[in-house]
Design a protein around this nucleic acid. Structure first.
Lengths: 208, 208
DNA sequence: GTTCAAGTGTACTTGCGGTACAGTTGTGGG
DNA sequence: CCCACAACTGTACCGCAAGTACACTTGAAC
C-alpha cells in the first residue's frame, strides 16, 4: 500500500512545478526566480533544492511533465471522438471540434505552450531539453500523420498536400493561435483557428 | 545636408538593436544582458545608457523597429506580386509563393518573430509594449483582410470561412511555423506551411 | 523506536541589472 | 578658430537572484 508513498498532502514537488509552469509561460524561464516559486508554494529554498539540484533540472522536469500531459490529453480526446464515430475522417473532425470547444471553455484562454516558450529561449537550455522539445513535436507529427493516413486510405485527396505537413499544421495552428490569442487579447481566436484547420482537413478529403 | 547627422559610421544605436534582436530571439529578453550587448557592439555601458534610458526603452525600440520593418517587407512583397498580376486572387497567391521562397532562401532559417517572443514574456513589459504587439497583429489582420475582401468580391467562396480568421491564419501559420522549424531543426518546415496556407486560400476561392 | 524521506534555518559567494554622474572627443557651424 | 553639442568613456556603487554548504528537525512507516 505504498508504491510512491508521497508525503502527507499534495506533493510539494508538483506544486513547485505548477507555480513554475504558469510563471514561465508569463515571463519566461530566466526571469522566473526560485525565490518567487518558493514564496508561492510556501517552502524554503532548501526545500526547493531538495527536489531539484539546480534550475536546469527544474526546466527538464517541467517540460517532461508538460509533454506527457499533452500526450495523455490528445490520447483521451481523440479516443473519445473515435468511440463516437466509426469513420476515421469523421472521428478526426469530431476530435478537432472537441478540441476547439475545450479551448473555448478555458476561462482565461490557453495559458501557453511550454514547447513554444522553450523554443524562444532555447539557448538557456541544454541539449537534453532541446532533444525533448524536438521529440515532442515529432511525436505530434507522427500521431496526426497516422490518423491522416487512415483517412487517406478511405478518402481520395481532393487537394494534393503532404501528410506530414498537414499533420504538422495542427501543431502550427495551436502554437500560432495561442500567440494570436495572447497578442490581441481574444481567447476565442485560438479555437476559431482550430476550426479553420478543421475546415481545411474536411475540404482536403471531401472537397468543397 | 544634415537632417539627422548621425555620427561617423553606422549608428551605434542600430548596432545595439541588431545585437539585441538576435539575442532576444535566442534567449529571451530577460536573459539578454546589457553587458553582452555592449561587448558585441564594442561600446561601454555608459554608451548604452546614452541611447536607452533603461532596458524597457530598448524593448520598446526593438519592437517598434521590428514591426515597422515587417510592414515594409509585406508592402513591398505583395505590391511586387500585384504588379505581376492583375487579378487579386492570383496576386495574393503569387505573393504567398514569393513569401515562401523568401523564407526558404534564408540560410539559417527564420530567426524568429519578436511579437511571438514578447507574447511569451509579456509580464516583463509595460502596457505600451503590449499595446504595440496588439496593434501589430491587428494591423496584419486588417492588411490581409482587405486583400481577401477584394478577392471575395470577384470569386465566390467555396468554403464558408470568416475573412478575419482567414487573414489571422497567415500570422498564425508564420508564428507557428517558426516554432515548428525551430523545434524540429528543419528550416524548410516554415515555407512548407506557408504553401499549405496558400493551398487553403486557393481552395476556398477556386474549389478543389 | 529507529530510520528515512522531506523538509527547515542560516550563512555565504558570485555575478548581473541598473544607477549616477563627471569627464572626454570629434565634428560642424558661426 | 573655437565653441557647442552629440556621442560617447570611466569609475564607483547598490540590490537582487542563483547557487553552495551544512547542520538540524519532523512525521510516518516498518
Amino acid at each position: 500500500m505504498h508504491e510512491t508513498t508521497p508525503r502527507k498532502r499534495g506533493d510539494t514537488r508538483e506544486r513547485i512545478l505548477d507555480a513554475a509552469e504558469s510563471a514561465v509561460l508569463e515571463k519566461g524561464f530566466a526571469s522566473t526566480s526560485i525565490d518567487e516559486l518558493i514564496a508561492a508554494v510556501g517552502v524554503t529554498k532548501s526545500g526547493f533544492f531538495y527536489h531539484f539540484k539546480d534550475k536546469g533540472e527544474l526546466a527538464r522536469a517541467l517540460l517532461s511533465r508538460y509533454v506527457a500531459r499533452e500526450n495523455v490529453l490528445f490520447d483521451e480526446l481523440f479516443d473519445r471522438a473515435d468511440e463516437l464515430n466509426e469513420d476515421p475522417l469523421h472521428g478526426f473532425l469530431v476530435g478537432l471540434k472537441m478540441l476547439a470547444e475545450m479551448l473555448a471553455d478555458l476561462p482565461n484562454g490557453h495559458p501557453g505552450c511550454l514547447v513554444a516558450a522553450y523554443c524562444y529561449q532555447d539557448r538557456l537550455f541544454d541539449r537534453e531539453v532541446r532533444a525533448l522539445t524536438r521529440q515532442a513535436v515529432l511525436g505530434w507529427r507522427a500521431r496526426f500523420r497516422k490518423r491522416l493516413e487512415e483517412i487517406a486510405a478511405r478518402y481520395p485527396m481532393r487537394v494534393a498536400v503532404d501528410l506530414d505537413d498537414l499533420a504538422d499544421m495542427l501543431s502550427v495552428i495551436a502554437d500560432g493561435g495561442i500567440i494570436l490569442s495572447k497578442a490581441v487579447h481574444d481567447k476565442d481566436a485560438l479555437p476559431r483557428q482550430v476550426m479553420l484547420y478543421r475546415d481545411f482537413v474536411r475540404t482536403v478529403f471531401l472537397g468543397t
